[in-house]
């Protein structure tokens, strides 16, 4: 059974080696450090990271769109207070990524067939619509395209040739990543935010 969550910053580096893009982030131990990370007003997301809190947004442990120093400071204090119940914890600040669509890209180890890869409509819609497509790794370009075709939301998340190419490339990279990292039992990149001309994974959940 998968047990240990890979630290965000470590996961960011591991994925980076496969050119899988994720939001830049840093752990902070004070409001001052968080304000510095925003480089004078770039919007931030602030999250409590704890083994005891798996669904952060449901538990009120995420604050988004913080750019004013006062707001950053307020959020830091608020989250620190809430996190007392789920010690040990860390506070992560992350560059906000703006986009209009959210997808999930996932991986898991099936006891019969080995490594699986998943793609679907992401963010808060994952559980509601369960609009996902799954394949056994490794996948090829055809499989990646078929996965997108299988989704009811395929035309929404990849409306044109360019975004389709970008997403199939991402799926191929993730397939390679999960095959190369046998120890990673489960992987959730959710949400991966899609914006004009690019994507960025903003939450990384790698379990080993």
């Amino acid at each position: 059974m998968p047990g240990k969550l890979v630290d965000y910053v470590e996961a960011y580096k591991m994925l980076g080696a496969y050119e899988i893009k994720a939001a830049e982030a840093k752990y902070v131990s004070s409001a001052k450090e968080a304000i510095e990370f925003s480089h004078g007003g770039e919007p931030l997301a602030m999250k409590v990271i704890s083994e005891k809190a798996l669904h952060k947004s449901k538990s009120g442990l995420v604050r988004l769109g913080l750019s004013k120093p006062a707001d950053i400071e307020g959020a830091f204090e608020d989250l620190s207070a809430k996190a007392q119940k789920i010690k040990p914890y860390k506070i992560l600040v992350q560059k906000m990524v703006k986009g209009d669509k959210e997808i999930i890209v996932g991986g898991k180890t099936d006891e019969q067939f080995g490594k699986l890869i998943l793609v679907g409509l992401g963010g808060i819609y994952v559980e509601t619509f369960k609009d996902v497509a799954i394949r056994v790794c490794p996948i090829n370009e055809y499989d990646a395209n078929e996965m997108l075709d299988q989704l009811k939301s395929g035309k929404i998340i990849a409306p044109d040739e360019q975004s389709r190419k970008m997403l199939t490339n991402l799926l191929l990279k993730v397939s390679k990543f999960i095959l190369d990292h046998k120890e990673i039992e489960e992987l959730d990149l959710n949400p991966v935010i899609i914006y004009e001309g690019g994507y960025c994974a903003v939450d990384l959940r790698l379990m080993r």
Binding site: P2, G106, I134
Partner: peptide, 24 residues
């Protein structure tokens, strides 16, 4: 899946894995 630590694990259960193999 019993080990539903992630969305993926809960969405890609045993049946879904078979379904994926059949399609692929």
């Amino acid at each position: 899946s019993k080990a539903a630590h992630s969305h993926t694990a809960s969405l890609a259960g045993s049946y879904e894995a078979y379904d994926a193999v059949f399609r692929q």
